[in-house]
Each structure stands twice: as structure tokens, then as C-alpha cells.
Design a protein around this nucleic acid. Structure first.
Lengths: 149, 149
DNA sequence: CGAGAATTGTTTGTGTACAAGTGAATTTTT
DNA sequence: AAAAATTCACTTGTACACAAACAATTCTCG
């Protein structure tokens, strides 16, 4: 006698795509990016905002690759992100006199002003992303999520 | 009396990048992709695997866009993923006689064999991704994560 | 000091991901 | 049945993300 829609053994071997971490992480991040894109912070993407914020938070100048690592980007990705931020006049690059391989990055006043204005907006984005969870659930979720990084 | 490293008001207005959902989701998914890439399932990416698995799980033929929606991809992304799977001989496309706009997709025996072989591997990938969490934490995390999709 | 190792920034190529627009075909509405 | 709206597949352009390779520079260690 056939079982359910297939018959015999479970052809999917108990694998349910919609319950897999990877699939859910991808969908959750997609949803977050959609929320982010709706809010337009001077047209910045999540990655661009994170990068500019990290630079903003740095006490002094920092090299390109070093900044990229602080935002979890590889060197190739960093190159593109920095170029786009520089083209928008949000940061400046200058040769490091002490290490001729390096470019030192610094946020411009325009960049810093954008970050300051953006803080309340990105707080709202975080709130909107976590909206389906209760306050207690949010704490739990963020604590566990941080363990998976 | 100065507070912390700066003095006076908090210049970051209480915004800590490493505690934001978006930033953590991005990093967690990056980590998952790294684990996935290490395991090589016939060279498939997470998205390609999800797409082929969904097609595998479909009872009959399905159109390209419809399959894409089941995997949370837009039409443009779907086009590229399907092309690559087709080039590898993992699925076939044929014109729908009843709707001349549509291409009907079907997994090939090669595609189905790949999925069957891959199931234990992707189960290991899920396990490795969730490894930092206890069994109870995993259930909680997946339940909350699903709410954010 | 000098050879090998490591780091910095860059480029190229591949693979998602989305926006915006196209033309063909189908469905819905009137 | 004709008009309007929708759907399907596709294309172009932009933006991450990683692998792999490269030259220039700096560091390390014998």
C-alpha cells in the first residue's frame, strides 16, 4: 500500500529544505536586505553602511584590507566597496608614507554626517527585521546567531 | 568625568555593529557558505543544490519562474541558476505545449542521482553549521529564524 | 645582510541577488 | 470579442562574495 504522495520509502530521506539553517539564513538575510533597501540611507547598501560605520568608529586612519577584515570582506570585495564609497565622497584614500603598499582611509565630513543621520534609520531597520519576535525572543535569537559567526 | 575611550556623549549613539541582526545574518550565512564550499556536492552551490532539490521534490514538470519562486529567487537570478544546472546535464527544459511562454523543467537521472548522493552530505553541512549550538539551542534558533523569513 | 615568507592592493572570472525594462503569450475585465 | 492587466522568459546594469593569480613592498630569520 502506497504511503502518501510517493509510495514506499521517503524519497527525500527526511531532508526538508524549509527547515535547513542555510536555506533559512539566506531567506532571512534577503528579507533584511529588502527592508534595508526600502529605507535608503543616501543610497548605501548594508555592506557599504557597515564599512563606512566601521571607518567612522576607528580612532585614526586605517588601511583598506584592515578595514575590510573588520567588516568580514575579502580583499577583492573590499576594493569595490571602498571605490564606490570614495566615488561618493564619503571617504578619502592617501598613500601611507610608512608602508608604500598601503592606502590609508579616512571618512570625510560628508561621510560622518551621513553616518550620524543614518543611525536612527538603521536602528529602525533592525527593529523592522526583528519585528516578528518578542523582546525575549530577540535576545535569545541574537545570542544564538552570534555563536554561528 | 569622561566616559570610556571618547569622552562626553557616545559618538556611536549606542549602535554596535557586531550586535545588529543584519550584520550577524550576513556573517552567519558567509560561514555556512564556506562550510558548504568545503564539501563539494558535484561542485554545486547552496542555491544550485536548493533549486535541484526542489525540482527533484516536484511530482511533475514545473516552469522556470515557478521553481525559482519555490527557492526564493527572482526571475533574473533563476535564469542563471537554471542555465548552469542545464549545462551540467542535471535538468532538461522543454517548451510547454499548453503555454508557449513557459519552459517545463525536469530533473535528469544524473540530477536525481546527484541529489540522492548529496543528502547525507548536506545533512553534514547543516550539522557543521549548527555545531556551536546545543541540541536545545538548535531547535530554538531554527524556530525563531523561520519567523524572520 | 640577504633569501624566503608574508602582506597589500589589484585584476579576472564565476556565481548569486535585485532593479528595470523588453516582447510574447495568456488571462481577466469590460 | 476587444482592451487591459498579468505572467513568462530574457536582458542589462549594479553590487556583493570568493577563488586564483599578480607585482610591489615589507617582514623574518638564518
Amino acid at each position: 500500500m502506497a504511503t502518501g504522495s510517493g509510495g514506499g520509502d521517503d524519497p527525500f530521506l527526511g531532508y526538508v529544505l524549509d527547515e535547513q539553517v542555510g536555506f533559512l539564513l539566506r531567506k532571512a538575510y534577503q528579507r533584511h536586505m529588502t527592508i534595508f533597501a526600502r529605507s535608503t540611507i543616501g543610497g548605501l547598501t548594508p555592506t557599504q553602511f557597515s564599512t563606512l560605520f566601521r571607518l567612522f568608529a576607528e580612532p585614526g586612519p586605517i588601511s583598506q584590507n584592515a578595514l575590510g577584515r573588520l567588516v568580514a570582506m575579502d580583499a577583492a570585495t573590499t576594493k569595490g566597496v571602498i571605490s564606490r564609497l570614495e566615488n561618493q565622497g564619503l571617504l578619502t584614500t592617501q598613500k601611507d608614507p610608512n608602508d608604500k603598499r598601503r592606502y590609508l582611509l579616512q571618512s570625510t565630513e560628508k561621510g560622518r554626517a551621513l553616518i550620524r543621520d543614518a543611525i536612527p534609520v538603521v536602528k529602525g531597520i533592525t527593529e523592522a527585521t526583528l519585528e516578528p519576535l518578542t523582546k525575549a525572543e530577540r535576545e535569545t535569537f541574537l545570542r544564538l546567531l552570534a555563536k554561528l559567526c
